Computed example of a mutant assay.
Amino acid sequence: MPVALACPIVLTAAERERLKKMAYGHKTQHRLRCRAQIVLHAARGRSNARIAHETGLHLDTVRAWRGRFAHGGLSALADRKRSGRPARFTPVQIAGTKALACQLPAETGVPLSRWSCPELAAELTSRGITDTISASTVRRWLREDVLKPWQYRSWIFITDPDFRPKAERVLDLYARTWEGEPLGANEYVISADEKTSIQARCRCHPTLAPGQARSMRVNHTYGRGGAVAYLAAYDVHRAQVFGRTEPTTGIDPFMALVTQVMNQEPYASAKRVFWIVDNGSSHRGQRAVDRLTAAFPNAVMVHTPVHASWLNQVEIFFSVVQRKVVTPNDFTDLSEVADRLRSFEDRYNATAQPFQWKFTTSDLDDLLARLDRHTADRHEESSVALAA
Rank of each mutant, 00 (worst) to 15 (best):
S116C: 10
S134T: 14
A36L: 05
T293H: 14
G223R: 15
A78L: 13
Y24A: 09
R139M: 02
D365S: 13
F355P: 06
H307G: 00
A42C: 08
L311K: 08
W150M: 12
T12N: 05
S362T: 02
D333C: 11
H283R: 07
F317R: 09
R284W: 07
F317I: 04
R127Q: 05
S309E: 06
M1Y: 08
H237D: 03
W178I: 00
G25W: 08
K358Y: 05
K195T: 09
Q240S: 03
R44Q: 13
F242N: 07
T327N: 10
G226E: 10
G72F: 00
E194R: 09
L59P: 03
W178L: 11
L59D: 03
L57D: 02
R203N: 06
A175H: 04
F69P: 07
R287C: 07
R342H: 13
L367M: 15
G211C: 14
N186D: 02
A175Q: 10
F157E: 15
N48V: 04
Y24V: 05
A14I: 06
H307V: 00
N349Y: 00
M216I: 00
E194Y: 12
R378L: 15
G243L: 01
A239G: 09
N48Y: 01
Y152T: 10
S383G: 14
N312S: 10
M301R: 11
R370N: 03
R46G: 00
R342K: 13
A376P: 06
E345M: 02
Q37I: 00
A233M: 01
T304P: 05
F274Q: 08
H30A: 12
P305K: 08
V218I: 14
F254Y: 11
A192Q: 09
G211V: 09
V337K: 00
F331A: 07
Q240V: 05
V39C: 09
C34D: 13
L124Q: 04
T360M: 04
G109H: 05
W357Q: 07
A227W: 01
Q286L: 07
P8C: 06
T304D: 07
G285P: 12
A388H: 12
